[in-house]
């Protein structure tokens, strides 16, 4: 499994709760690594242990940890590049939702080897969407929930994003767009204001 996934969990825990908490999470999860490198590959089975260690040490359900990771990816300065790359997906939040089908492809284009679940978006009626994530890593749906909530905020859109369950390896999300101009859009220009950096 791509190191970026592990590295994201690590920076989320370290940035939000301190390096000590990260070390403890690794101990709780019985993970035989002290730090993950973004550009190396790790045994996929480690992810479950890392996440269970994080959930234990933070004393909150794994789903909440995953959601927070999604939000963190878009809002934290360390990952400013990710927010920008997401904004390339659409000029408003609804357009972004429609572009989610392309997210795994775009991700692969950016980082070959970083495999995300297949994403299928359906607009049942205006402003009401369902999103299906097929294939691993299981739990990605929760990350997407946090990520979409943060992106809605970024566009100044009021939307409800919920995870409504998993079945046969697929996760289903429900999104309702309530007000596209609820608040100010944080803004996005095609040209980066300063050179994007990655952690």
């Amino acid at each position: 499994m791509h190191g970026l996934i592990f590295r994201t969990v690590e920076t989320f825990i370290s940035d939000s709760f301190g390096h000590d908490t990260w070390s403890k999470a690794l101990v709780m999860g019985d993970v035989p690594v002290t730090s993950f490198e973004a550009m190396l590959t790790y045994d996929a089975a480690l992810l479950d242990r890392v996440l269970s260690g994080c959930a234990t040490i933070l004393n909150r359900p794994r789903e909440h940890v995953l959601e927070d990771i999604g939000t963190y990816l878009v809002t934290h300065q360390t990952h400013a590049a990710i927010r920008r790359l997401m904004r390339f997906g659409g000029q408003d939040f609804v357009e972004l939702l429609h572009s989610l089908d392309e997210l795994p492809g775009r991700t692969r284009l950016a980082v070959p080897g970083l495999l995300l679940p297949g994403i299928a978006v359906t607009e049942h009626r205006p402003h009401h969407f369902s999103i299906r994530c097929d294939g691993g890593p299981l739990g990605f749906g929760h990350v997407l929930v946090g990520l979409l909530r943060a992106m809605a905020d970024d566009y100044g859109t009021l939307a409800m994003v919920d995870h409504i369950g998993a079945k046969d390896g697929s996760e289903i999300l429900q999104v309702t767009v309530i007000d596209a101009e609820f608040a100010d859009d944080r803004g996005f220009s095609l040209a980066p204001q300063n050179a994007a950096t990655a952690s």
Binding site: A81, R84, L85, F88, R106, L109, A110, V111, P192, A195, A196, T197, A198
Partner: peptide
């Protein structure tokens, strides 16, 4: 997008 993703 690609240019920025690649740089990152």
């Amino acid at each position: 997008f690609l240019q920025e993703a690649k740089s990152t």
